[in-house]
């Protein structure tokens, strides 16, 4: 049948797309310049003030490089200290975040798909979510000793909520027509979960995971500041106690950069995984 050729898929006009790309590039350049200007201002102000507690970036960056990034090229320029500091931090961060993600999604699916269970546990969830996670550190310390277990537990408890609540919301707000379509065509059970419910909830689940990643970084640092002895947070504390102010600032700057980097990588993964979502909405 050849009538299908009459119907043409909607295509964005190339002129408009070109202009959008140009605007995007311009705003990107503006963003970079603002950052450069701020760093220059930081340098000038700290030099003018000349305070030991506020070293200029020109003192922080060499300290940063000497501490962590002056290693052999074969080790990606990482120093011995870098591996000792980053290793435990990243392990705790991703272990905690990963566990929270798995628990959050699995629990969210269970609670979201069962009205009775949701009704039962929701007040408890809202209470637990409202407990500021760092307040649990003393309790977890008593329970689990200093170290990885306590740190991971802190992160998991602190960041599981956005994933859990967003998953509950996501699996509950699956389009009614999509569910009816699944029913009519006999798509049930695990197949329905995997092919209909989870993909439909994915945008909300991803949003929860993204918020969690930010929290996880914060909790990672806090748990290390409590006296873990290792990790980037511990380094900041030790540098401060040793009065190595540029080294302490180096840790702070590093954490800021890491936060941005994680966010960026996550955004890229999210955009790939949810390409259908953006496109489907744009063409609506």
């Amino acid at each position: 049948m050849s009538t299908a050729t009459v119907e043409r898929p909607p295509a964005a006009e190339p002129a408009r797309r070109g202009r959008r790309r140009l605007l995007g590039a311009l705003s990107g350049i503006a963003q970079v310049w603002l950052l450069v200007l701020l760093v220059i201002a930081w340098e000038l102000v700290t030099r003018a003030v000349d305070d030991e507690f506020f070293p200029p970036p020109s003192a922080i960056l060499p300290a940063l490089r000497d501490m962590w990034f002056s290693g052999p090229a074969g080790d990606l320029f990482l120093t011995e200290k870098a591996r000792a500091d980053f290793g435990p931090s990243f392990r705790n961060l991703f272990l905690g975040w990963g566990l929270a993600g798995v628990i959050g999604v699995a629990g969210g699916v269970l609670i979201g798909r069962s009205r009775a269970l949701g009704h039962l546990v929701e007040p408890v969830l809202h209470f637990l979510r409202s407990v500021p996670p760092p307040t649990l550190i003393p309790f977890l310390l008593a329970l689990l000793d200093l170290g990885t277990q306590m740190q991971v537990a802190t992160i998991v408890f602190g960041v599981v909520w956005p994933v859990l609540l967003n998953t509950i919301d996501g699996v509950r707000s699956v389009d009614r027509l999509q569910l009816e379509t699944a029913r009519v065509f006999g798509i049930t059970g695990w197949l329905r979960m995997r092919r209909v419910i989870l993909p439909s909830a994915a945008p909300k689940i991803f949003a929860g995971l993204r918020v969690s990643l930010g929290f996880a970084l914060i909790l990672m640092v806090i748990s290390e500041l409590v006296g873990a002895g290792q990790g980037i947070g511990a380094h900041i504390l030790l540098a401060q106690q040793a009065f190595e102010i540029p080294q302490m600032w180096g840790g702070i700057v590093l954490l800021g950069v890491l936060g941005c980097l994680f966010n960026l990588v996550f955004a890229l993964v999210e955009r790939r995984a949810l390409a259908w979502h953006d496109n489907a909405r744009r063409n609506d």
Binding site: L177, Q178, T181, F185, S200, H277
Partner: peptide, 25 residues
């Protein structure tokens, strides 16, 4: 029994290709 709904944009699953939409049932 099969149904063709009026609202195709909501009845087809946007995260699956056309072929997978047809093959899923």
């Amino acid at each position: 029994l099969a149904v063709v709904f009026q609202d195709y944009s909501r009845s087809l699953l946007p995260w699956l290709t056309v072929r997978d939409n047809v093959a899923l049932p």
